[in-house]
């Protein structure tokens, strides 16, 4: 729990490797994720970024926000490009063509670029065991192209391709379990994080780099534009997502599950949903149905974590 300590902020480097002045919307939580990521990873880092919000807002030539080497090739292949970067570092250091020393390789993709179109490349990277941290910033839809649904979009959420219609009330399916998919590859480290808990996230980035092999962090990053909520609400929304159990924070390390926060009780999901336009159309019955799913999933995770502790 040291990352929830009041002194945590004093331990974070002041240097900004993701510089301000980029083109993100007001209240963009994914941009916060980029900033925290580089504070934790430091300057000895190379990034392969998938096409998406974070790529577009940070790299409109010549206005580049990145203070570390950064490459963008396409949408679905950040994990494959990062695989190549890692292999390149390995062979060039072995052959004495590149100075020795640890270089952190990070692949970044949004939920569309990771859950959907990039899943195959991600699976390949995880299975081959490249020394890469894959960071998926999840704002629960294709925000860059105008708020279309992805397989990370939660049930009943209204998007431009899963609109709240008279017959079908928004997204018809629930969110894919990305962390579970990553863990099923038998990788050393998988974690969930949220931009409203920056020190927890930064500690997880550090743990990831201390763990050999491939690793994945799935960070929940609210999008006021896509969720139709106020830009000044995003930190509160992130906290509520965690405190309601909608997005539980946990780690999977060495085959064991650990909950990152002890929640004495789950706040009702209505408190999270009420300020978001994407859920405005929901009936009490639909909210109750989501509540049931959220509670059940949270309890299942708690059981996994408890079973891990019992060994």
């Amino acid at each position: 729990m040291e990352h929830f300590n009041v002194f945590a902020s004093k331990l974070v480097p002041g240097r900004e490797l993701f510089s301000p002045g980029h083109k993100a919307c007001q209240g963009c939580a994914p941009a916060l994720a980029m900033r925290y990521l580089l504070k934790a990873a430091g300057p000895n880092t190379i990034i392969a970024n998938a096409t998406g919000c974070m790529e577009i807002i940070s790299s409109a030539y010549p206005d580049i926000a990145w203070g570390v080497p950064w490459i963008h090739v396409a949408f679905e292949n950040a994990a494959a490009v990062a695989s190549g970067i890692e292999a390149g570092i390995k062979v060039l250091q072995r052959k004495g063509k590149l100075a020795p020393g640890k270089i952190n390789v990070i692949a970044i993709g949004g939920d569309g670029g990771t859950f959907d179109i990039g899943l195959q490349a991600l699976s390949g990277m995880l299975e081959r065991g490249h020394e890469v941290l894959y960071l998926c910033y999840d704002n629960e839809a294709y925000m860059n192209t105008g708020i279309q649904r992805s397989s990370a979009t939660p049930m009943f959420s209204s998007t431009t391709t899963s609109p709240a219609g008279k017959k079908i009330p928004g997204q018809a399916t629930g969110k894919k379990d990305l962390a579970g998919i990553a863990a099923a590859h038998n990788v050393g480290y998988v974690a969930t994080a949220c931009t409203s808990y920056p020190f927890d996230f930064m500690a997880k980035v550090k743990t990831a780099f201390e763990t050999p092999g491939s690793k994945l962090i799935h960070i929940f990053a609210p999008c006021p534009t896509g969720w139709r909520s106020a830009p000044n609400e995003i930190i509160k929304l992130g906290r509520l997502a965690v405190q309601t159990g909608i997005f539980p924070l946990y780690e999977y390390k060495g085959g064991q599950y650990h909950m990152s926060m002890e929640l004495p009780f789950l706040k009702p999901i209505k408190s999270y949903m009420k300020s978001q336009g994407r859920y405005r159309h929901l009936s009490e019955e639909q909210i109750a149905m989501v509540q049931e799913n959220v509670t059940a999933r949270y309890e299942w995770l708690q059981k996994l974590a408890a079973a891990s502790q019992e060994g």
Binding site: N77, G84, A87, V91, Q120, A121
Partner: peptide
């Protein structure tokens, strides 16, 4: 380094990664 990728799309993507490192 021999990278046995999971598709040709990734073969070319990983090749750009290694080449961008100077390999």
């Amino acid at each position: 380094e021999f990278i046995p990728v999971e598709s040709e799309h990734s073969a070319m993507s990983a090749a750009l990664g290694t080449s961008a490192m100077g390999a």
